[in-house]
């Protein structure tokens, strides 16, 4: 038996390399998640220190019968969807512009210039948005100087500011995913559209957009997950008065101490994400296999 054959046969033993990762995944990801799902069916007394391990739906009941919670939940969904929508609306033309309009040597630089700042601390960026959007800040003085508004508009400390912050973040994620597809589109497909008498718009609608769908969907799903779970933007930019789901989670653990209730919020967040993401997985998969 040759050396190569022997090594090919040893491929099974190679699985050892994946073991640390798999074990870590089980102990520090899967078990904690399962544990909070179980916890959400337990209940705590008023101090939060004594936990009754009898099965109960009390936490879910108190979530869905409390109007304050329902409003916060719907607000989370509304803010998240608006942000993702803003992201898509900006990212798709932006991606088209980078791939098909600007000169080749500038492409990567422009992409890097847009994407890189989003890697830095979200707290710092949210804080810089506070500076930008505040009533005495440059946005208001600019708009007033040009006579576009008479009074300073208050965007900061409302969820409009949250949507701006999260919307730009979503824009970056959708852009990266859409760009990677658009850049690989076979130019002869576009020429075919031109040969048949179509213009740039026809190229976009008939070829570029349909091929980009998997990237747009994947980017939107990843953004939606981030928006639903974000705590920084609703607190620093949204003002923290009109509560969202992530803030309820923090309150239930940090100011109050109710583990089963915090678990229930978590499970509800997890289910919400699954409901919105699962129907779209097939689009993402289709894109990957290149069908």
């Amino acid at each position: 038996m040759s050396q190569v054959q022997k090594l090919v046969r040893s491929e099974r033993r190679l699985m050892i390399g994946a073991l640390p990762m798999a074990i870590y995944f089980l102990i520090f990801f899967l078990f904690p998640l399962i544990y909070i799902i179980i916890n959400s069916f337990w209940s705590a007394d008023s101090t939060g220190m004594v936990i009754d391990r009898a099965f109960t739906l009390k936490n879910y009941q108190s979530f869905f019968t409390n109007q304050f919670n329902i409003v916060a939940y719907l607000r989370t969904i509304g803010v998240s969807f608006s942000s993702v929508l803003m992201g898509i609306v900006l990212a798709v033309p932006l991606s088209y512009a980078i791939v098909f309009v600007i000169p080749k040597k500038w492409k990567q630089l422009v992409l890097l210039a847009i994407v890189t700042p989003f890697w830095t601390s979200f707290i710092i960026r949210a804080f810089s948005w506070q500076l930008f959007l505040s009533e005495g800040g440059p946005l208001n003085s600019f708009l007033m100087k040009w006579g576009l508004i008479n009074q300073p508009i208050s965007i900061l400390y409302t969820h409009k500011a949250t949507i701006i912050g999260l919307g730009l973040f979503s824009m970056m994620i959708v852009l990266v995913n859409t760009y990677s597809i658009m850049v690989g589109i076979d130019r002869s497909l576009l020429e075919a559209v031109s040969d048949l008498g179509g213009g740039k718009w026809d190229q976009f609608v008939e070829v570029i957009l349909p091929l980009s769908v998997p990237g747009i969907v994947l980017g939107s799903m990843l953004s939606l997950i981030i928006c639903i779970g974000d705590y920084i933007a609703p607190t620093l930019l949204g003002g923290g008065v009109k509560t969202v789901l992530s803030q309820l989670m923090i309150q239930s653990l940090k100011s109050g101490f109710n583990i089963p209730m915090a678990s229930t919020y978590s499970v509800i967040m997890l289910l919400t994400i699954l409901i919105f993401v699962l129907p779209f997985v097939k689009y993402i998969k289709r894109g990957r296999t290149g069908e």
Partner: peptide, 27 residues
């Protein structure tokens, strides 16, 4: 299946992992 499940932690919000691990470690 291995590759895609290993990527699952990237598909849930950080806050969920924070809460889950805090409760897990507390217990």
């Amino acid at each position: 299946i291995f590759s895609s499940s290993m990527l699952l932690p990237l598909a849930i919000p950080y806050i969920l992992l924070g809460v889950a691990l805090r409760i897990y470690f507390f217990n």
